[in-house]
């Protein structure tokens, strides 16, 4: 593999995202956060910081998810449909370098997005803390600009990268519409995976329970990446848990990318 080729393909994806105004979502995020903070400031007394944390982390995840799914599913499909891939693959670009470049490009877009949104998020929280009295600040479960929230941000980023890889995988052989459906379905099921695991405790059907448990182990466990409630309420999240979940995400992501490469490697572009 030639890393320079991967980087150049990735750079092209990032440039496309910027020129197609994908980063405009950052403005929407900032406006949403500031507007909600202002509104809550009028309505609540001191508890608004918890709501802003909840809302901010959820918004980072949701905005990122929209980018990962809706751009991810078009990454390969658009190149094939518009035939721009013909010229690209006649250059010294191996098919797996193309797939990895596409993934890295959208991954970079997402990381930049999450980073900028996180900075805006901390700025709003800092402003909230600044305008409150020391007594009110002392009543909070966790400081407004609690660094522990970065653990949640990190796990959101890993989750988004995994969603990107899944969207990219579907994009190697399916239309955007089907790819969106399948990616979102997988994300929803993965986010409810603990329910799948525990199905046996609420239904008396061993086959269904066994099947659900099998799916729990096979499908990506997106619920593992969700530590928003813990960090908002000041419940400690261990570094070991964050590291292990990140490794889990990275290994799963590697398998999905390998599958995408395997499908794409033998594909005919008719």
């Amino acid at each position: 593999m030639n890393p320079s080729i991967v980087l150049q393909v990735a750079g092209s994806v990032f440039r496309e995202s910027v020129r197609d105004r994908v980063l405009y979502n950052l403005v929407a995020f900032a406006v949403l956060l500031i507007a909600v903070s202002f509104l809550l400031g009028q309505l609540t007394a001191g508890q608004d910081v918890k709501i802003i944390k909840d809302l901010g982390l959820a918004a980072i995840g949701t905005f990122g998810l929209l980018i990962a799914v809706f751009i991810g599913v078009g990454l390969v499909w658009k190149e094939v449909e518009k035939r721009s891939i013909y010229s690209l693959l006649s250059k010294p670009v191996r098919r797996h370098e193309f797939i990895l470049g596409k993934f890295c490009g959208l991954g970079l877009t997402l990381v930049v997005n999450v980073a900028v949104m996180s900075v805006a998020f901390y700025l709003v929280l800092g402003w909230l803390a600044w305008r409150e009295t020391p007594e009110v600040r002392a009543s909070w479960a966790a400081p407004a600009t609690d660094p522990a929230m970065l653990k949640a941000v990190l796990l959101i980023t890993v989750e988004l990268l995994l969603v990107t890889a899944i969207a990219l995988f579907f994009s190697t052989f399916s239309s955007p519409f089907l790819s969106v459906l399948m990616t979102v379905a997988l994300w929803v099921i993965g986010s409810l995976s603990t329910d799948l695991r525990d199905l046996g405790t609420v239904v008396d059907a061993p086959v269904a329970a066994g099947l659900a448990r099998g799916l729990y182990y096979i499908l990506p466990n997106f619920s593992a990446f969700d530590v928003k409630a813990e960090v908002v309420h000041g419940v400690p999240v261990g570094a070991g848990y964050v590291a292990l979940t990140t490794v889990y995400g990275a290994v799963y992501l590697a398998f999905v990318l390998a599958a995408a490469v395997a499908v794409f490697a033998r594909r005919d572009f008719k």
Binding site: R83, S84, S87, K91, P92
Partner: peptide
């Protein structure tokens, strides 16, 4: 290779496209 009815990235200029492809070499 020139494909039939070639199509390239909308968001790039002709200059940028050629520079991108030259970079791949």
């Amino acid at each position: 290779y020139l494909p039939e009815h070639p199509y390239f990235y909308d968001y790039l200029t002709a200059e940028e496209l050629l520079q991108y492809f030259a970079g791949l070499f």
